[in-house]
Design a protein around this nucleic acid. Structure first.
Lengths: 211, 211
DNA sequence: GTCTATAAGACGATAGAC
DNA sequence: GTCTATCGTCTTATAGAC
């Protein structure tokens, strides 16, 4: 490959990314059917035909967005260290999950939107990965229970509770801002949520180290 | 009003309801923009022009669906008895909320879909009701804490946790069925979830009556 | 690679006969 | 009240000049 074609490819990749970021905003607000290629082009600052040059169509663009969302998610998830004691693992996981929803609210909402509508666009491999990850976590929790390290609890229900409660600020952001009578949620709000959720999860597991 | 016009009105109301039920299915699967008037008419088993006879347009139909969803929700919510002790109130609320998502998964998902996209179609009155209801619950919880009836916990974070965890089976039904490798979730699954969540919420509040 | 101009079709809505 | 046929608009996608 010549240096020229590499340069062109790099520029192309950069433009692709600009378009994907624009598409994220559009799909998040309007869903797949409601999203408009023209608006995505406007947000990205390119002519509409240009979007079709980089992506074969609306569906291909949406697939690219979902793929990126899952990639970001897997990257953020990987540092979780298995084998550590329950308190550390749960604490780390809850805080990481809350931080993820703060940093990537669009990704969180696009994924939630997709699940809510039945996950028709999710690939089988993503589905299998999720199932495997969940099974492994459930077994780890089951192990803790049998070793008497935490109180008995249905592992899956605990995982579901942690998932949903940590995502709430992203999924219902508008409602929560309305309840708090706020224009936006601050980093401090997310930190307080992470603190609260950590305490609550520890109490559920009987890991209460508080006075 | 003549008996004839009353009969006609009753028939009209029945047909309106058939159309609304069809619209619920369609809006749930595809969101507002993705929903098709033709598909709604097909599901309802009436010609498309008939839908426009009963509802002035797509937006009016969606409004009718949202209004019905909120009505059903308010009806289910009303029996909650204030003044009772924390354990009773929390137990009753968690179980009622899980049962609601089991009986009305479409309503739960339409509302979640609406919130996820910023609640653009929700009326100000619904928003105000929600804020008032949440504030009242938060004060009740605050009271329990000050009376030493439950452990200290951020009332709003506790409410959000209960909301999200009880809705999970409806919001991520596809994902959860995939994890469980099931075709459908049974009544028993929901009962087990309600039992688990009740225990977990009690532990959070230090109301643990287990051995 | 970029962009304008337009084709091809889908969609919400309605006119008007019954 | 019901239904068919159709209008006008909006949207994706592409052809073809630069």
């Amino acid at each position: 490959m010549s240096s020229v074609s590499r340069k062109v490819t790099a520029l192309g990749a950069k433009k692709r990314d600009v378009i994907i970021r624009a598409a994220e905003q559009e799909f998040e607000k309007h869903g797949f059917s409601g999203a408009r290629m023209q608006r995505i082009a406007d947000i990205a600052g390119v002519p509409k035909a240009n979007v079709h040059y980089y992506f074969s169509g609306k569906q291909a663009l949406y697939d690219a967005v979902l793929t990126k969302v899952v990639d970001v998610w897997n990257q953020a998830l990987s540092p979780i260290s298995p084998g550590a004691d329950p308190e550390q693992v749960l604490d780390q996981y809850v805080r990481m999950k809350v931080e993820f929803t703060r940093l990537y609210p669009e990704a969180t909402r696009i994924f939630a939107l997709e699940l809510l509508q039945g996950g028709q666009h999710l690939s089988a491999s993503i589905e299998n990965e999720t199932r495997k990850w969940t099974r492994d976590r459930a077994r780890e929790i089951e192990g803790w229970i049998q070793q008497g390290k935490i109180l008995p609890v249905d592992p899956y229900h605990l995982i579901f509770l942690i998932w949903s409660s940590t995502q709430q600020f992203a999924e219902s952001e508008t409602q929560i801002k309305s309840i708090y009578r706020r224009k936006r949620l601050s980093k401090k709000d997310y930190e307080l949520l992470a603190d609260s959720l950590t305490v609550m999860v520890k109490r559920i597991c009987g890991l209460n180290t508080e006075r």
